[in-house]
Design a protein around this nucleic acid. Sequence first.
DNA 1: TATGAATGAGAGTTCATTCAT
DNA 2: GATGAATGAACTCTCATTCAT
Lengths: 210, 210, 210, 210
Amino acid sequence: MIMKKLTRAQQKALRPIQILDAAFEEFIEKGFSAARVEDIASRIGVTKGTIYVYFPTKEEIFSAMVRHIAVPFEAVHTNELNGSCSEQLRSLLLLCYEHILGDRRTRELLRFAISEGIRFPELIDTHYQELVEPILERTQAIIDEGVRIGEFRSGTAPFARVIIAPFVAMMVDVLILGDNRDLGVPLYIQSHLDFVMHGLAVSETSGSVE
Amino acid sequence: MIMKKLTRAQQKALRPIQILDAAFEEFIEKGFSAARVEDIASRIGVTKGTIYVYFPTKEEIFSAMVRHIAVPFEAVHTNELNGSCSEQLRSLLLLCYEHILGDRRTRELLRFAISEGIRFPELIDTHYQELVEPILERTQAIIDEGVRIGEFRSGTAPFARVIIAPFVAMMVDVLILGDNRDLGVPLYIQSHLDFVMHGLAVSETSGSVE
Amino acid sequence: MIMKKLTRAQQKALRPIQILDAAFEEFIEKGFSAARVEDIASRIGVTKGTIYVYFPTKEEIFSAMVRHIAVPFEAVHTNELNGSCSEQLRSLLLLCYEHILGDRRTRELLRFAISEGIRFPELIDTHYQELVEPILERTQAIIDEGVRIGEFRSGTAPFARVIIAPFVAMMVDVLILGDNRDLGVPLYIQSHLDFVMHGLAVSETSGSVE
Amino acid sequence: MIMKKLTRAQQKALRPIQILDAAFEEFIEKGFSAARVEDIASRIGVTKGTIYVYFPTKEEIFSAMVRHIAVPFEAVHTNELNGSCSEQLRSLLLLCYEHILGDRRTRELLRFAISEGIRFPELIDTHYQELVEPILERTQAIIDEGVRIGEFRSGTAPFARVIIAPFVAMMVDVLILGDNRDLGVPLYIQSHLDFVMHGLAVSETSGSVE
DNA sequence: TATGAATGAGAGTTCATTCAT
DNA sequence: GATGAATGAACTCTCATTCAT
């Protein structure tokens, strides 16, 4: 089963992906400027000259890497969400959390948007298009439906952003503290869901709060 | 009133601060690695050499700058919050929002924590100690009190983090998109507050939601 | 008549020549150092590797190219020159001018001698042996004969070099300005010939000039 | 009298000139592409970083060097030429020859025009403006006057270029062979002058030559 | 205190050359 | 014979840092 040697053609098709994966790690650790092309090369056991066979500049490596990791968060659209609107929203949020904790790529895209967005504006667009907007749209759709059928109370406009916010905040925590530390994620998620459900619920006693 | 010439002593006391302010701007725009000591110097009309009179290395400039901008978010502790727990929480959150929109320093500290935290671990500590923890503690205190006196429902533990989250998410948006774009902040804040109040309210009908 | 496919043997025999022709163009445009082996290859629709099948180093390509283009200026010896010595000289000079304007190879050899002669001393020898000396010898022979039979006046020694000089100067102009610009060549040639004839003529009034 | 140490200010004013002089030598020996910035630096005992304090790119060093060496050949205009037109022309040509043999700068400018003119078009302009045109203009002026007063015969138009040509051809010889070889310059000059005088002389016997 | 010329250790990039396919 | 992926040495250019003035 072990195939140490790939054919030339296989190797060639693989190289750009290997490079971008290696670049991903280096850029995360060092940032764009501090990352060295040679270190990217070392990670996959080639010399820096090889990198330049596939990409003309370090900038291009970075941009290509962003495109490489920014796979659209399709699950958010394709996943069939069942049950009441509450249940759908709950499923959607859980889907998001799984996505962070499992997929560094999407999470690190946020880091790049924050740290390199000024120099790579495309990054910002990519981040919003691939991650933020899909989630916001789906969320808002569920809320709207919930409000329409009377399952959720009607309220102030940009609800979706607020409802999604704890998920974003957790991404930030993971980015800063790393995913090996215990951030109390399960309890946090529970709290988030609990809160969302209460916040959206049609309640009689809430009239006087605001 | 115009004081064109400062005494030498004043000048001397001022320089480090000028440098750190200039460094702050450069590090935001370029990041630690890409920022040039010479550009920091240019911003205050001196030359490279002068910077090294006050700081031994670029690393030191960065660290000192972080300490310089990370003024503890004291308002969060000193401000007298009046009224019911709801009102106090509301005041606290509004205080936070004012803090983002008015004070780039605290906001950019978050950027540095995300972008340079790996290389400057102190940054992470600073960010949590100066910004995150004070807010969380005060928030939690209010919630606890609210629960104790029956104003808020009792719920799952890390409530404070969830309640603060929309504020964090907005910081991230401002970091990524800049503060000159219209991010719909007033409405967002209203939505956040509205949501928090409903989520914490003691409601009768919410029993079946989760 | 159309021969799209050459036999392998023909192809093989052709390649080195194709390469040297392509190399000639590249070396003219860029000079030895700046010319890229890959660009030479592109010109004939092959890849770098192919070049190295035929030539071991870039230096060798250059040297071989020089040998390739430095076809001895045989016309200058073989051409039967008829008529008086004046007429012969006139024919010889016209032959040289045709040679410049029609044949870039010889002309560019001069460029290489000037620009790369220091690093490729053989170039200098080649240039003198293939171009300069044949012309000088033939010229001097005609002059000597003219002087001997009293058709030309006798004069100072290195006449041939001086007589040939305008032709050299025109080569230089073409090298510098390119052969697409109008350099007034026909008139220049006329002037050159006119001048040579007067300069060599046995005159009575010229005694006092020097 | 020996001053090993110059003041800072003196040193600084000197540096660019030192660099350009060193660059001149390197560019002559190696050509633009093959010349190394580090070698230019070594020649004046500094490191390559120093070069970049004064010039932003190698291209700029080259261009600045060309401007540096291309001092207009003013002697050709300012020198008072006395005597008959023949004598003036003779003096002018001798002036040119002195200029080649004494001043490498002007001579090497011709080499650069030939070898790097394609990539640095300004070089060509400079060479013509600073060297070629001044000589041609002055020469033509003398010829015209000589013709006007009947000292020279009238002839075909671009006489000046032809008359100057032997001087150009000798420059080329020196460029190719170096100025340490014995090129028989004195005799060549004598022959050139002799030829020019005969070629321009008003002669009775020359009618049948062309 | 401030300067800025000089340094030198890199970093990005290029390209002649090799060699397995 | 032809390819082109890979190499690695070399080169240009950058910039944090030093230090004499």
